[in-house]
């Protein structure tokens, strides 16, 4: 009983800047004229724990939490935390994953093993998925802290919002002295995702 709401998930590890990315996204969606709801959990779960932000938009949104199996797009800031939320996605959903591993405590303690084939597992379920070299692109933009904006740029290609509006929001929400580097980070992310997306498509038709 799927309604006309589009469902976006942003997942990662507490402290990675997920909150800011989801703020920018929902602000952009509001300005684009959609009804928007967004939800994430604060408090205990922030201290380096697993974090997921839900963003829903459309003509009219009810629940702010995305029902299981109805996610349309997943943007993962970390590989394990991308994989963890795959069950929330529908068949044919779009996955964008930052190519980064952060070991959780049980792995650091030697009590669990970090799976090393996560990109392959994701690709198996979601063939159109994209692996984004977030840190490399952030460094290319000029600041490793802009990984979240790189990833937002990568996500922007999957959302029906005019490019000009994204830039308007970045101008509004990013402090002046960080603006240039963030605009570059956004552009690098956007280009990478669209290039990969095309490659996948060409591969499929070949």
């Amino acid at each position: 009983m799927k309604n006309n709401t589009t469902n976006i998930l942003i997942s990662g590890v507490g402290g990675q800047g997920i909150l800011l990315a989801s703020e920018i996204l929902s602000e952009a969606l509001m300005l684009a004229g959609f009804d928007v709801k967004k939800n994430e959990i604060h408090g205990m779960s922030q201290r380096g724990g697993s974090v997921v932000s839900h963003i829903r938009f459309g003509a009219k949104v009810y629940s702010s939490i995305i029902p299981e199996g109805e996610g349309d797009v997943l943007l993962g800031f970390e590989l394990l935390e991308t994989y963890r939320y795959l069950p929330l996605l529908r068949k044919g959903a779009k996955v964008l994953a930052n190519d980064l591993k952060i070991f959780p405590a049980p792995v650091n303690l030697g009590k669990a093993v970090y799976p090393n084939d996560i990109p392959e597992r994701i690709a198996r379920h979601f063939p159109g998925s994209t692996l984004v070299p977030g840190l490399d692109l952030a460094l290319e933009a000029g600041d490793p802290r802009t990984v979240n904006v790189v990833l937002l740029g990568a996500l922007s290609g999957s959302i029906d919002i005019e490019p000009g509006l994204w830039l308007e929001i970045l101008h509004k929400m990013v402090p002046e002295r960080f603006l240039a580097v963030n605009l570059k980070a956004f552009e690098l992310g956007r280009r990478t995702a669209s290039a990969t997306g095309q490659a996948v498509q060409e591969g499929a038709t070949a």
């Binding site: 935390e81 795959l86 996605l89 068949k91």
Partner: peptide, 28 residues
């Protein structure tokens, strides 16, 4: 709510293993 009212279970497309390492919060 859907399951309680109609018995319908969520449309699961991907299932992941229970043994996936957890990521509990920790002191900084």
């Amino acid at each position: 709510v859907r399951q309680a009212l109609s018995g319908e279970t969520p449309p699961v497309y991907v299932e992941i293993e229970d043994s996936l390492p957890q990521r509990p919060p920790s002191m900084c």
